[in-house]
């Protein structure tokens, strides 16, 4: 089985972002970048499927030349090779889905697995848009994936618990947190990943226009919460909640 895994380069989510003073974007000076955490679950799932049943895992990342680093990090987790679609343009989800659709057509995978959302934009859009553009079924927020003959049965994380959905292949699946436990890359794998094939192409090479349907006009700081207070005892806490905040 061939599995295509789109991966995204994101600023370290554990560092609070600083906005540029003119609101035009985020100040990334001194910030390290990582593979989007949810995409690591996607890579792990794909690698486990291939380890069990054979096939190959192919990564694709879209963005600046720096995304090669992201791809190499993903290749060290067990993927075979990767695509780097190089562009300096900031693409929205609709444009990303167009690019992924073009790569899908080049590769004709049996399955696409990716993270349920990027932790920078928090959009949670591109995979579903890709499924729509390719007219393929989807299973988002996967908790468990079982592959059968030309189909997948997916348990999905939903409000209030799980549901179970059966989809025919090829299909698009997005990974949620409990899907698996992503492995750490061992040094020999990291070294090996440096030599794996990364095919670099431009949007023009793929013949996609990648027109964004949305544009970020500006970023602003959210309103800050008023400073709170430290109370000295449980008694004082209950008193404040009853008499000041009036929530008990």
């Amino acid at each position: 089985m061939k599995i295509l895994v789109p991966v995204r380069r994101v600023p370290n989510p554990d560092i609070k972002v600083r906005l540029k003073s003119d609101g035009s974007g985020v100040d990334t000076e001194g910030v390290n970048f990582l593979v989007n955490p949810f995409d690591e679950y996607a890579i792990e799932e794909a690698v486990q499927i291939v380890e069990k049943g054979g096939g190959e895992v192919v990564l694709v990342s879209i963005g600046t030349a720096d995304c090669e680093e992201t791809l190499r990090a993903g290749l060290a987790l067990g993927a075979l090779r990767g695509w780097l679609v190089e562009t300096d343009e900031v693409l929205d989800s609709a444009a990303i889905a167009d690019v992924l659709a073009a790569v899908f057509k080049e590769e004709s995978p049996d399955l696409v697995i990716t993270g349920k959302q990027s932790v920078d934009t928090d959009n949670n859009q591109a995979a579903q848009m890709l499924a729509a553009k390719l007219d393929l079924p989807q299973a988002c927020f996967a908790f468990k994936v079982e592959l059968g003959d030309g189909k997948a049965t997916v348990e999905r994380e939903i409000d209030g618990g799980l549901d179970v959905k059966e989809i025919s292949l090829p299909a698009i699946i997005t990974a949620d947190l409990r899907l698996n436990q992503p492995r750490y890359a061992a040094l020999p794998q990291i070294m090996k990943a440096k030599r794996k094939e990364v095919k670099k192409v431009s949007l023009g090479d793929l013949g996609v226009e990648a027109k964004s349907a949305t544009k970020i006009l500006g970023l602003a700081q959210p309103p800050a919460r008023a400073a709170g207070q430290i109370v000295g005892s449980v008694e004082e806490l209950v008193d404040k909640l009853v008499n000041d905040a009036k929530v008990l």
């Binding site: 609070k16 972002v17 985020v26 920078d120 928090d122 500006g218 970023l219 602003a220």
Partner: peptide, 12 residues
């Protein structure tokens, strides 16, 4: 909101 709620984006 974007970036875990640390920015409010205006989107066109």
């Amino acid at each position: 909101p974007m970036f875990a709620g640390n920015a409010i984006a205006t989107i066109e």
